[in-house]
């Protein structure tokens, strides 16, 4: 896929900031052994509320969820920043974001203990980040700016 310089710059910048967000959130959790999503999950709302509460109430399930969440965020973030397998990372990131959205959907009448930083109706920042990742999946930039470029250059490319 070919992009103009402006297009490439904007796409890479988006990839970097989302990667930054994921990586930092992930590492903060990884570095804090006492961190758990329990309180957040217990505060869930919406159609799938019960499932998230059940997760929170089962230590083994919660431990696994916390582990995959923290490391998942970290690796997704790293992949996006480095530009390595960022399409797969975008999909994985979308899965995580959808889970966050479903546990705390911005539906009218829904209130959570942790106050929202703005006024939202169905669309909130989680959902926007979800679609931003979808955009990155559709317009990959790894092969232009990213580790992927170096790896590809080491291989013999077959002409289509």
């Amino acid at each position: 896929m070919n992009y103009s310089k402006k297009q490439l710059f904007s796409l890479v910048a988006l990839r970097m900031v989302i990667g930054w967000h994921f990586f930092y959130e992930g590492m903060v959790k990884v570095l804090n052994p006492a961190w758990t999503s329990k309180a957040y999950l217990l505060d869930s709302g919406g159609w799938f509320k019960q499932i998230f509460i059940e997760i929170a109430n089962h230590d083994a399930v919660l431990g696994t969820t916390d582990f995959f969440n923290a490391w998942g965020l970290t690796f997704i973030g790293l992949a996006l920043i480095l530009g390595a397998m960022s399409r797969a990372a975008s999909i994985a990131g979308m899965v995580l974001l959808m889970l966050y959205y479903l546990s705390h959907p911005a539906f009218p009448g829904m209130e959570y203990l942790f106050p929202s930083d703005g006024s939202y109706f169905i669309v909130n920042k989680t959902l926007i980040e979800f679609f931003a990742l979808f955009l990155l999946f559709t317009f990959p930039t790894d092969h232009k700016v990213g580790v992927c470029r170096l790896i590809r250059f080491n291989k013999t490319e077959i002409k289509p």
């Binding site: 890479v12 970097m16 990667g19 930054w20 920043i81 480095l82 530009g83 232009k144 700016v145 990213g146 580790v147 992927c148 470029r149 170096l150 250059f153 080491n154 291989k155 013999t156 490319e157 077959i158 002409k159």
Partner: peptide
């Protein structure tokens, strides 16, 4: 179809994220 060599430009683009 030749094996490509890595230029300075490729290197910069490939590792652009390191400062980040």
């Amino acid at each position: 179809n030749k094996k490509k060599s890595i230029s300075r430009r490729d290197m910069l683009a490939g590792l652009a994220s390191l400062p980040v």
